[in-house]
Design a protein around this nucleic acid. Sequence first.
DNA 1: AGCTCTACTTAGGATCCAGGTA
DNA 2: TACCTGGATCCTAAGTAGAGCT
Length: 720
Amino acid sequence: MASDDDIPAKKKIKAKKSPNGGSDVKMKPAVVKSASTNKATSSSKKKRKRELEPDPVKSSSPKKKKTAATANGPKKELKKLDKSERLQYAMQSFLWWNAKEPPEGCQWVTMEHSGVSFPEPYQPHGIKMLYEGKPIDLTPIQEEAATFFAAMDPEGMHLGNPKTANIFIKNFFADFRDILGKKHVIKDFKKCDFEPIRKHLNEQKIIRKAITDQERKANKEDRNQAMFRYGFAIVDGHLEKVGNYNMEPPGAFRGRGEHPKMGKLQVSLPGHAWGDIRHDPRGQWLATWKENINNQSKYMQLAAQSSFKGKSDRFKYNKAAKLCDKIVDIRKSYKRDLKSKDKETKQLATAVWVIDRLALRVGGEKDTEEEADTVGCCSLRREHFHFDPNNEGGDNKEIELEFLGKDSMLFKQTIDFGATMYNEENGMGVQVYENLKSFCSKKKPTDEVFDAINPTLLNNHLKQFMDGLSAKVFRTYNASRTLQEELRKTEASNGWKRLSAAEKVIEYNNANREVAILCNHQRSVSKAQETQLENLGGKLETLKKQKKTLKAMLKAIAAGNTDKIPTKKHDEKALTEKAAKAVEKAKKLKEKAKTNEEKIKATEADEEAKKKKREITEIKFKQAHLWDKVPTRDQVVKKLEAWNNKISKMEMDLKHKDDNKEVSLGTSKINYMDPRISVAWCKRNEVPIEKIFSKTLRDKFNWAMAVEPEWEFNAKIAEE
DNA sequence: AGCTCTACTTAGGATCCAGGTA
DNA sequence: TACCTGGATCCTAAGTAGAGCT
């Protein structure tokens, strides 16, 4: 059904190369009415195959094909590759850093792509929500809205917190009532019961879990077909990966923190309406549309491993590296200006100090009616500063900074401006403290501390030191410098050369952690993680008790009191067999299950069996230190040694997990640390790059892979 | 000069999946 | 050899910055 519509849609979107090769097309779906339906996944596989792009490997120039073939083995080998792999090779064969640049001011000349893929339209399930306990008939559109709400986790970050739950419910219900109409019986949220729909959704989840391997394969194939169709673009003759080709499905807006609009119903593209087709080679986007709640532009862009992103990334890191030299002048300048009589100059200097030393974001203005109340440097308020937080009195120079930053992440740190690290080498920590104190004096809690400046002013000020310098460059610069310095420190430590690759990777991760802490990259501890940590703690306690028992056994053996030695209470063999049988039975049920009821039953039986198995594992663990019969002294000594190892290993593991549970290492790796530092480190230390960068990261940073072992993040590298 | 708008980077949570290990 | 966990990937929100507009 979809396929007939696909053709015109595709024609519309696809660029036609004009004879002169000039006018390829950018599209801009939305806004206008020219409707077209165009589906990503459906049953019409055969048809789709024919419609696929001419094989991009073939479509690229003969020359390029040759490069791909010679670079990766003889042509015969290529034949064996599947389509995904061939596409991979085609993309990897384009080394943009060796290629000709597009014309000045342009990012591309020709562009071909298949547009966005729309999700399947909503399929009504017919499950009725209750109002005052009675089932209510809803139209498909009304039912869809109700289902958005039912899909929210009652314990999740929106509904699980009473404060946000109130905002969410208020917004959702207002929009829901709009859809229901004024005369609808549903008038009071408290009388609504979405439980039947929620239950239905959970059942669907369970059913999905019970799919066979075959079905799973088929699903993957479907997704692959969509990926072949929408996931690639040809930019100036080169194959490139598209990032987000799936149109965002409608749903309840999930704003973070205390976002005043969370819960409102969000529809990206009413009626799949395409807008105009635009050819604007100055930008990198492939499609753009407006979202209805915050009136924000959304974009379809190329993926992270594309040449566009790679170029921007390299440019970003080179700019940050340039700072290595300029920073001296900048710091000299702001240190002088910290004492300026001019309020604006003084505030600018103080703000740049804060951005440089504390790695804060610049902090643009926000409208709290429209967005969550979060701040950065320039928008910090008096209420975010607690002077002398521990009431130490005297010449205490501590300030506790407490505010919500980007994504409503809590920044809560006590900065001792009198500390050596902020004052050595004329760091001016104490002066900054005095400035902040004076900026705060005579102000209301809600007044801005930096009331004489704003991000535009600050960034313009920075431009005088370096072309293109803005506040965010400091975060990139300091993150990369920190990584490099931390890595150098460990490399200079005693016995470094003797460490195994795995041990070196741990050190790398420690350096990465320093950067993440500097940038305040956090993650919240999920409930599952919390219980896991508790369980590990419990296990550790058990191990320690068992060690005590083992020691007592040694004593008893020495004293000849062998009758006092405990032995295993439970017959492990019998228990294990019992569990295995239950698992086997559940498996059979799963294989036989045809109807939804059977699938649900099978999954439940499966979960029950697994639970039993876990219980038995637990029993085994609790008597693992014992024997069936009275052991010899030798046996006990051996086991005691093993237990000591187990305990120290688990203690390490636990500490490691605890240290890391709230720190997110990925964000700095992806966005802040110059990848060339990591690549060079790997080369110097004979650590395989795969231990540091996943496949996706290696593709994203392909431009960084060729650096020399001694490569350094400094101002010189920007000269290339 | 200050505001709005556009285009891009940066971000954490949810979900998926593979590989290490009991 | 199944299981579980942690890492990879997906998703889209939330920043920054600069251009353009009034």
